[in-house]
């Protein structure tokens, strides 16, 4: 089943067009990585998929529903976004943060009830931070905070979860931890995430989208996408692609 269908997507900011007609399809349960050089339109694509920016032409459908025809609240129940940079809000706990993920389910005169608390606690459990649920955000380490932010998105119970460079500011231990969580989370939903680290993306994603200047250069399995030619095309960097001797994943090595 197609979880996310994008066809002929054109969008940008004001007069400026960033994405120049993008099309791809992602199946239920896939973990897809979006890679490409700075400014290639990765973040813009996520912002379009989450409905933050209006699209100029083309279509986005999530589980068969056209994004254009959904209200803001309905989109929020389908799609959750974990932004690249989030300031920890002062004075609130992890549980408070995750409960905010229930916002799209609350009616005008409603406030969070026990169900919402249960779902928030489930989300906290999914990312493995039960023991710090009552800690203040300002007391968390980078890796803990990132997991709390992911739990907040999970509490939205989205079919599609979008993440913008979720590991780029973490140490390798937490990079692995976050990626393992995402790999596990993909089973009941679809995950699309941007990455800078090609080797990490190659190792954990089923498929990769390689972008350049608002267009897709290659889309497919990591070993199909990460070729010498594609990397040169997208990044203007000379590289060689080998296999990770243990995991057999495609691994890029930079050449002088």
């Amino acid at each position: 089943m197609t979880a996310l269908g994008v066809s002929g997507l054109v969008c940008g900011y004001g007069e400026k067009t960033i994405l120049q007609g993008i099309s791809f399809e992602i199946k239920l349960g896939e973990f897809v990585g979006i890679v490409g050089a700075n400014g290639c339109g990765k973040t813009t694509l996520l912002r379009a998929l989450s409905g933050i920016i209006k699209i100029k032409s083309g279509e986005i459908s999530v589980y068969g529903k056209n994004l254009k025809e959904l209200s803001r609240r309905d989109i929020a129940r389908e799609v959750a976004l974990v932004p690249q940079l989030m300031e920890p809000v002062e004075g609130i706990t992890v549980l408070d943060l995750v409960l905010l993920g229930r916002t799209p389910y609350l009616e005008r005169f409603d406030f969070v009830n026990q169900d919402d608390v249960d779902i928030a606690k489930w989300a906290i459990g999914e990312v493995g931070i039960e023991e710090i649920a009552d800690k203040k955000l300002s007391e968390l380490s980078g890796g803990e905070f990132q997991r709390a932010v992911i739990a907040r998105a999970l509490a939205q119970e989205p079919h599609l979860m979008l993440l913008d460079e979720p590991i780029s500011h973490l140490d390798i231990r937490y990079q692995m931890k976050i990626l393992k969580i995402l790999r596990k989370l993909r089973y009941q939903r679809t995950i699309v995430s941007t990455f800078h680290d090609l080797n990490m993306a190659s190792r954990f994603c089923q498929r990769l989208i390689l972008m350049k200047k608002g267009e897709i250069v290659a889309f497919g399995r990591p070993d199909e996408v990460l070729t010498k030619e594609n990397i040169w095309k997208a990044y203007r960097v000379k590289a060689e692609v080998r296999k990770n001797p243990k995991t057999k994943h495609a691994r890029m090595v930079l050449l002088p």
């Binding site: 989109i75 932004p83 989030m86 809000v89 905010l100």
Partner: peptide, 23 residues
Amino acid sequence: YFYSKELNALLLGEEIAYTLGVE
């Protein structure tokens, strides 16, 4: 009082509030 949910969501910034369904 009844818009306090939206104000809470706005604690996370306008963009995230938006993705949480807040107009």
